[in-house]
Amino acid sequence: MKFGIMINEGPYNHQAADSAYQFAKAALEKGHEIFRVFFYHDGVNNATRLAVPPQDDRNVTKMWQELAEAHKLDLVVCIAAAQRRGILDADEAKRQGKDADNIASGFRISGLGQLIEAGIQADRLLVFGD
């Protein structure tokens, strides 16, 4: 089956991103396909490369990066939600006149249309949130 995944909460404050990761990992191991993972609301905070969780804790951003690299996952961060919360890629930082960007490699910033497309293309769209 082809799944779309939506993540609506940030890492560490909420378990949504962890649960989504566990689901995605299990689904991929069973031979299913993940069409796209879309990060919305505070979920965009999963995409910062500047987080430094304690060494004895999991690193949620890194978990997604590694899973994405192993399975060529499309990790998409909503641009409107990201701009509100200070998640920027190099192009956006330049466009907005900011002095730095912070998006982690493996994630890309795009629009809400990517979420709707995931809903259309996937057999099931799963929402992980509060």
């Binding site: 919305y40 629009g111 809400l112 249309g113 709707i116 497309e117």
Partner: peptide, 12 residues
Amino acid sequence: ESLEVVLIGAAF
């Protein structure tokens, strides 16, 4: 932000 999704989604 739900309303923003609805408005964007309407174009589809």
